[in-house]
Design a protein around this nucleic acid. Structure first.
Length: 856
RNA sequence: GCCGAUGUGGCGAAAUGGUAAACGCAGCAGACUUAAAAUCUGCCGGAGAGCAAUCUCCUUGCCGGUUCGAGUCCGGCCAUCGGCACCA
């Protein structure tokens, strides 16, 4: 082949060869406890990638970044004597597949299968050490059977208020609770609340899927409308989802993101009587200490009380305002947020703390979905209330004394209570407590905690998703029997959205009809469902009796730490959604005794985005997308893997550089030529410089430094510096006249997690000539070398001499030299003396083995 | 507006409070070659002095502090990127 001439080493021949050999020998199959070849004496290591959505575009260079990192860790841990679980699978339900199917007229199952095949082939060509026997696919009935089963666990559970843990609803039945009471407490429940309806997509969306009032997928307009939907009671876990972040090895920024998303705030409920009505309104406030400063009240326009209390003369204006607000999309609502708007209802509330009559307004800056949908307005000490009061000329009253020199109007920080009766003179913190106690004593309120997190809208009007294992009869819902799982979607020709909130499954009339009197639930689950528990399925992917066997779950997820997966690597885009949902499901399963740890993921690392060569985000329209297949074809899989790791720290955003790929490719070619040389005919043969000799001391030292640094850097995920060290060793070997086979053999083992193909090939070639210097089987199966601390020790060390902290001279001294000795040498140095300029010595600092600093 | 991350050569970057710029890219020079590519060797932050080896001063976004010594620790500011955003 003519192209051979251009290849600095024949990666295109040996990369596929070793991929076949690994597969043929099932080199990366991981036995489970109970399997014949399972070794219980080894510790376990579960290293997990966020599984991909198999899109039609195929793999992007961003995918292999995280996958290579976990592959290096997995291979390294295997070599270090661990039982390593490193699986891969497909998050294959979802909107893009369905939209593509609608466009092309192909069934989404077909396109999904094709896409998965493409992805799998691409991943295999990168030489990842996945145990493919554990591959999962969320659209496989054998998989979603258990997704549905877990949904039924949620459906059949409630959270016990005392313990805060999920329990089976059968306990409530035993207590004699009514059907309605039980339904009101289920973790999966039906709600008739306003939801995010996206007409373009023909489905409702979770709050988390709506960005700036538009759908996250596609960017289509989203409107609010009340619909009957399935909800998951994630709010019951809000506090635990915050508290239990503490035991996890996650980036602090991600934990903060989750905490902020859940949005806990402490405050109080205060109940106001409405003047001239036998009605009350409860508000939530984080500043009960400012209750004396409440000069008006605001209800959300959607608040149910509005129509009851509005006076006849205000009714017209109020209704116009309500209609305007309703018709606005969330996007318009935020865009128009700059200026405060609102309308007076004509009604008054009685401030319980001083009996004052305060006007009740409605305004769109009060949201129905947060707190109670009603606020007491304290314009003196709240920015928004202050602004509103300015616009409508409402009174502003001071109840907090700010520090000296600070204006009290609009002062929102902590200060001292004034004009507040029994609170006067108290600090804000004390006043909050006093007021909460007072409210409770008088029976008009109490201290409480509120969360921004809402319950999770869990149903979608789509075809390509898990059907709910639910049937409806006589207006009420019930679970199908476990024996009827999986509930498989019907075969349909026409699965397009109906254009109305009616789900497409409604068109499969035979399927919908469950019995004479019962009908199936028509909604399907969102894409998040399958990804909430896939890491558990990997532990025991073929199990048909249980979602995961107890033994496999305890082994792979166990280990004493709160989280089961030892390392989870993926992008920041899942910082709140997927990671919050999965933690929630895991905690429910934990409470019910199905899993053994309270958290799913012990250590989380986010890989940084890879930008295009132009420093811009990669996108088709910019034309800066790099296709990994092209890189593999030109430089090989090892070069791609190595480059992605050499670019910079894993967690950092960094731009792609083809020149950089060439650089690591050249490095691998240098490694190749350490072992191989071309003969007269241009054939690769073992290098004559490779000999069975003892290495020089200097080379031994570099080798052992490399073993040590690479091992430590892999644990720290500092792959770029590990690769630098291997380059240093390679440079040293290149420059050696004679290359000891023993050093090369050990180096190949260190290299193998990073560049497994070239390591296997060179090891096999080395074995042909120096059998005892090379790994006997696969390098991938060999033991990680142990470094010898003695080899790192030097006889002599260079000491830096400073005068007043500035470098002035250096000297080589024996390693164990006494402090006084080194000090003497330093002071004797001509250059040190020159810079001392004859001034008296104030102080001398000696850092053994490092430096002497003379202060004059 | 709030929260978070990041600022070091021409570029990607490295540096337990102890020689700033390891390793790589690009560039320059040399060797090999008829030539080119590939490969190998050397140089490669800035200013100044010297024929030269070499030497001096400056340099980690900016200002200040702690320290014998700060890229690293502390305080203040600026810029870029990311997230949240009328959450009472």
């Amino acid at each position: 082949m003519s192209s051979d001439q251009r290849r600095p080493f024949p990666f295109d021949e040996f990369e596929p060869k070793w991929q076949d050999q690994w597969e043929g020998a099932q080199a990366f199959r991981t036995p489970n406890p109970g399997d014949a070849d399972f070794d219980a004496s080894k510790p376990k290591y579960y290293v997990l990638d966020m599984f991909p959505y198999p899109s039609g575009q195929g793999l992007h260079v961003g995918h292999p970044e995280g996958y290579t990192a976990t592959d290096i860790i997995g291979r390294f841990k295997k070599m270090s004597g661990f039982n390593v679980l490193h699986p891969m699978g497909w998050d294959a339900f979802g909107l893009p597949a369905e939209q593509y199917a609608i466009k092309t007229g192909q069934h989404p199952r077909k396109t999904t299968e094709k896409n998965i095949e493409g992805f799998r082939g691409q991943l295999k060509r990168l030489g990842f050490a996945y145990d493919w026997s554990r591959e999962v696919n969320t659209t496989d009935p054998g998989y979603f059977k258990w997704t549905q089963w877990i949904f039924l666990k949620l459906y059949n559970s409630y959270v016990d208020e005392v313990t805060g843990k999920a329990r089976p609803v059968s306990e409530l039945e035993a207590k004699g609770m009514s059907r309605e009471e039980i339904d009101a407490r289920r973790l999966a429940y039906v709600s008739e609340a306003p939801v995010n309806w996206c007409p373009e997509l023909g489905t409702v969306l979770a709050n988390e899927e709506v960005v700036d009032g538009k759908s996250e997928v596609g960017g289509f307009a989203v409107e609010r409308r009340p619909m009957r939907q399935w909800m998951l009671r994630i709010t019951a876990y809000a506090q635990r989802l915050i508290d239990e972040l503490d035991g996890l090895d996650w980036p602090e920024s991600i934990r903060l993101l989750q905490r902020n998303w859940i949005g806990r705030s402490e405050g109080a409920h205060v109940t106001f009587k409405i003047a001239d009505f036998e009605r009350e309104v409860t508000v939530f406030t984080t500043r009960p200490d400012t209750l004396f400063g409440a000069t008006y009240m605001v209800l959300a326009p959607e608040h149910t009380l509005v129509s009851e209390i509005t006076t006849a003369e205000q009714r017209g204006e109020v209704e116009v305002y309500q209609r305007t607000v309703m018709s606005k999309s969330d996007l318009e609502r935020t865009e128009l947020a700059k200026e405060k708007s609102g309308v007076f209802t004509g009604a008054y509330a009685i401030n319980p703390v001083n009996g004052e009559r305060i006007p009740i307004w409605i305004a769109d800056y009060v949201l129905m979905g947060y707190g109670t949908g009603a606020i007491m307005a304290v314009p003196g000490h709240d920015e928004r209330d202050f602004e509103f009061a300015q616009v409508f000329g409402l009174p502003v009253k001071q109840v907090v004394q700010p520090p000296e020199g600070v204006k009290w109007q609009g002062f929102t920080d902590d200060g001292v209570a004034v004009n507040s009766g029994f609170l006067d003179g108290l600090s804000t913190a004390e006043a909050k407590v006093q007021m909460a106690d007072w409210l409770e004593e008088k029976g008009v309120g109490r201290g409480t905690v509120n969360y921004k997190l809402r319950d999770w809208l869990f149903s979608r009007q789509r075809y390509w998703g898990e059907p709910f294992p639910i049937v409806w009869e006589d207006g009420s819902h019930r679970a199908v029997a476990d024996s009827e799982l999986p509930v498989v979607p019907p075969e349909m020709e026409d699965f397009k959205p109906t254009g109305t909130p009616e789900p497409p499954l409604s068109k499969a009339t035979d399927w919908v009809r469950y019995s004479e009197t019962a009908r199936r639930e028509l909604n399907t689950m969102p894409q998040w469902a399958g990804s909430c528990w896939y890491y558990l399925r990997y532990c025991d992917a073929a199990n048909t009796e249980r979602f995961v066997s107890e033994e496999a779950e305890r082994y792979w997820m166990g280990g004493g730490k709160p989280g089961g997966v030892d390392l989870y690597v993926g992008g920041t885009e899942h910082a709140v959604l997927h990671l919050l949902y999965a933690r929630f499901w895991h905690k429910v399963l934990f409470d019910l005794g199905f899993v053994s740890t309270p958290e799913p993921f012990q250590r989380l690392v986010n890989q940084g985005l890879i930008m295009g060569e132009d420093g811009q985000k990669m996108s088709k329209s910019r034309g800066n997308v790099v296709n990994p297949d092209d890189v593999v074809a030109e430089y090989g899989a090892d070069s791609l893997r190595l480059y992605e790791m050499f670019m910079g720290p894993l967690e950092q955003v960094k731009p792609w550089s083809m020149k950089g790929v060439e650089g690591v490719h050249r490095f691998l070619a240098r490694v190749w030529r350490v072992v191989m040389e071309q003969d007269q005919a241009g054939e690769w043969v073992i290098s004559s410089q490779l000999q069975d000799v003892a290495p020089e001391k200097k080379l031994t030292k570099v080798l052992h430094e490399t073993i040590k640094k690479c091992g430590e850097d892999i644990e720290k995920l500092s792959f770029n510096t590990a690769i630098s060290q291997m380059m240093i060793l390679t440079n040293a070997l290149t420059q050696s006249e004679v290359r000891p086979a023993s050093v090369v053999g050990i180096f190949l083992r260190v290299l193998s997690p990073f560049a497994p193909h070239v390591a296997e090939e060179l090891n096999a070639l080395l074995r042909g000539v120096f059998p005892e210097k090379a790994a006997a089987g696969f390098v991938a199966d060999s033991a990680w070398p142990v470094f010898d601390p003695a080899a790192l020790v030097e006889d002599e060390v260079e000491i830096v001499f400073q005068v007043n902290g500035k470098l002035r001279d250096k000297a080589v001294v024996p390693v164990g030299a006494a402090k006084e000795e080194v000090e003497k040498i330093a002071l004797a140095s001509a250059r040190v003396q020159e810079f001392m300029e004859g001034k008296p010595v104030k102080k001398i600092i000696v850092v053994p083995g490092k430096l002497v600093n003379v202060v004059v």
